[in-house]
C-alpha cells in the first residue's frame, strides 16, 4: 500500500513531517484536582489528576516520596468498531505502566512523602498515538493540579513507511506494520524519558526517525506552554490582579 504519494502527501493529506492538528483544554473534569483534554487529530483523551492526598492503601505508602498511580481506560465507543473489552487487559495495563513511569520521572516526588497522586486517563476517540496523547494530557492535568514537576514531559510518535520518516502516525499508518517510535521528552532538560519501538529499522535511519519524534515533542511542548500561559492569564483576570 502506498502511504506517501508521489507528490509527497500522506493518506490524510499531510506532509511527512507534519503533525496532526493539536488542541488542548485545561479543566475538563470539575471534581478533579487537575484535568485536561488533549486532541491530536481524531485522537481525543481526557486526563484527571487526584492528589496529592492521603495514601488509600497503607501498605503501599512510601516514606520518602509520593506514590504515583495511573490507570488508562478506553471507552467502548472510542474505536471504529464497537469493542467490549473487560477492564485491565494487557494492553491497557502496559500503557498505564508506561504513563506512570514517564510521569513519575518528572514529578518531584520527594517533596510529597507519604502521599498519593492518581492519574486517570480516559480515551474518548482512538486514532493512533493514544499513548502520546495520554502523556500530553497527563502533563497538562498535573500542571493544572499544581503538582511540582522538573519539566513538562511531552510525547510524540514517528514512523518509517515507503522509505520516508513520518511524524505523528494515525491509526491506518500505525497498523501498516512499519516501525513505530514513541518518544517521551523533557524539552528544558533536553532528555529522553520514554522510548519505545516495534518492528525493525537500520540504526542510521532510526536516528533520523527518533530525531523527528523529538522535534514533534518540542513542538507539542511549545503548544502546551502556550495553553498553560493562556490558562494562567485567565485565572489572573478572574482574580482581578
Amino acid at each position: 500500500m502506498e502511504f506517501v504519494s508521489l507528490e509527497g502527501f500522506r493518506l490524510d493529506g499531510r506532509r511527512p513531517m507534519e503533525m496532526r492538528q493539536i488542541r488542548a483544554e485545561i479543566g475538563a473534569v470539575a471534581k478533579a484536582d487537575g484535568s485536561a483534554v488533549f486532541e491530536m487529530g481524531n485522537t481525543k483523551v481526557i486526563a484527571a489528576v487526584y492528589g496529592p492526598r492521603e495514601v488509600q492503601n497503607r501498605t503501599q505508602q512510601i516514606n520518602d516520596q509520593a506514590l504515583v498511580r495511573c490507570e488508562y481506560s478506553m471507552a467502548n465507543f472510542s474505536t471504529g468498531d464497537r469493542m467490549r473489552k473487560p477492564k485491565g487487559d494487557r494492553r491497557s495495563t502496559e500503557i498505564s505502566l508506561v504513563i506512570r513511569q514517564t510521569m513519575e520521572a518528572c514529578i518531584l516526588t520527594h517533596l510529597m512523602p507519604r502521599s498519593q497522586i492518581d492519574i486517570f486517563v480516559q480515551v474518548l476517540q482512538a486514532d493512533g498515538g493514544t499513548r502520546s496523547a495520554c502523556i500530553n494530557a497527563a502533563t497538562l492535568a498535573l500542571a493544572d493540579a499544581g503538582i511540582p514537576m522538573r519539566d513538562l514531559v511531552t510525547s510524540c510518535s514517528s514512523g518509517y513507511l515507503n522509505s520516508t520518516p513520518l511524524l505523528d502516525l494515525n491509526y491506518v499508518e500505525d497498523s501498516a506494520g512499519g516501525p513505530d517510535v514513541t518518544v517521551g521528552f523533557l524539552p528544558k532538560l533536553d532528555k529522553v524519558t520514554l522510548l519505545q519501538m516495534d518492528s525493525k529499522l537500520p540504526i542510521d535511519i532510526f536516528e533520523n526517525v527518533m530525531q523527528l519524534a523529538i522535534e514533534g515533542c518540542k513542538a507539542i511542548a511549545n503548544y502546551i506552554r502556550e495553553i498553560m500561559l493562556e490558562n494562567t492569564k485567565q485565572l489572573e483576570y478572574r482574580r482581578g490582579i
Binding site: Y50, K87, G88
Partner: peptide, 19 residues
C-alpha cells in the same frame, strides 16, 4: 444500554470499583 463509570469521575471507580 451499557454504562461505564470512568475513573476520571472519582478515584473510587478505579479498576473494577465502578462496576
Amino acid at each position: 444500554i451499557y454504562v461505564d463509570c470512568s475513573p476520571t469521575a472519582a478515584p473510587m471507580f478505579e479498576g473494577r470499583g465502578g462496576e
